[in-house]
Simulated scan of single mutants.
Amino acid sequence: MNAPQDDESDVKPRAFSTLKRDFGALYTLLGHAAERQVIPTNPLEGINLQKPALTEEQLAEQGTERRYLEPEEVRALFAGLEAYQDEKRQQRRSSRAHGKAYLTDLDRVPYVDHVVPWILTMYYTGFRPGDLFGLRWEHVNLPFATIRKTIV
C-alpha cells in the first residue's frame, strides 16, 4: 500500500504571523547554540523576514474596506501637514537668503501651496481626489460655506 501523497494544490500557505513566530524561535535557538559555542555563529544573524506582497485578491479586498481614522492617525495627519508647511517655509527662507529675494515670503501666508488645502478638503468632505478634480465653481456656495456635488 502506498501512502497518500500530498497534492501541492491542497497545501495551504502559512500565515506570515506563523512564519514570523517560527523564525523568531529558530533565531533564538541558534543564538543560544552560538552563545554556548555549539556552533561557531548564528547563521541567521542579520537576516530579517520581509512581509510578502499582497495578492491581487487581497489588494481588491483591501480597497473596499473603509474605516475612520483613529485619533492618533488624525493627530499624525495634522502634525505631518504642519511639518510639511514648516519645511516649505524653511526652504523658501533659505532660497531668499541665498540670492532669490524676489521670491514671495511664505511666513505670512496660511498655506504655502495647494497640498494642505487639498488634503483638508478631502478630510472634511470625504471627497476622493477624483471628486476634487471634478469640482466646479457651481458646486461651491461661498455665502453658505457649502459644497454640493453629486458623486456617481
Score class of each variant (00 low, 15 high):
Gly31Met: 00
Pro52Met: 13
Gly134Asp: 09
Asn42Cys: 06
Val74Arg: 08
Glu73Lys: 09
Tyr102Arg: 08
Pro110Arg: 13
Ser17Ile: 13
Leu54Gly: 07
Ile39Val: 11
Phe78Lys: 00
Leu103Asn: 02
Arg66Met: 08
Glu73Asp: 12
Gly63Ala: 15
Ala101Leu: 11
Gln58Leu: 06
Thr104Gln: 15
Arg92Glu: 10
Ser17Pro: 02
Ser94Gln: 14
Asn48Trp: 06
Gly99Trp: 06
Ala76Thr: 03
Asp107His: 07
Asp107Tyr: 04
Arg75Trp: 09
Phe78Asn: 01
Ala79Met: 07
Leu135Thr: 02
Ile39Asp: 01
Arg136Glu: 10
Pro52Ser: 13
Glu72Leu: 09
Pro117Ile: 03
Phe78Ile: 02
Gly80Asp: 13
Pro52Asp: 14
Glu45Ala: 09
Gly63Asn: 14
Arg148Met: 07
Gln58Thr: 07
Lys149Pro: 01
Ala53Asn: 11
Arg36Asp: 12
Gly31Thr: 08
Phe133His: 11
Glu138Ser: 13
Glu70Gln: 15
Thr41Gly: 03
Ala83Trp: 07
Thr28Ile: 09
His139Lys: 04
Thr121Trp: 05
Gln37Cys: 01
Leu19Thr: 03
Pro52Thr: 12
Asp7Lys: 14
Gln50Asp: 14
Leu29Asp: 10
Leu103Ser: 00
Asp105Ile: 03
Gly31Leu: 00
Arg14Leu: 08
Tyr27Phe: 13
Arg36Cys: 01
Phe78Ser: 01
Thr150Trp: 15
Pro4Ile: 04
Ala34Val: 00
Leu49Ala: 08
Pro13His: 11
Ala53Ser: 11
Arg128Ser: 15
Arg66Cys: 06
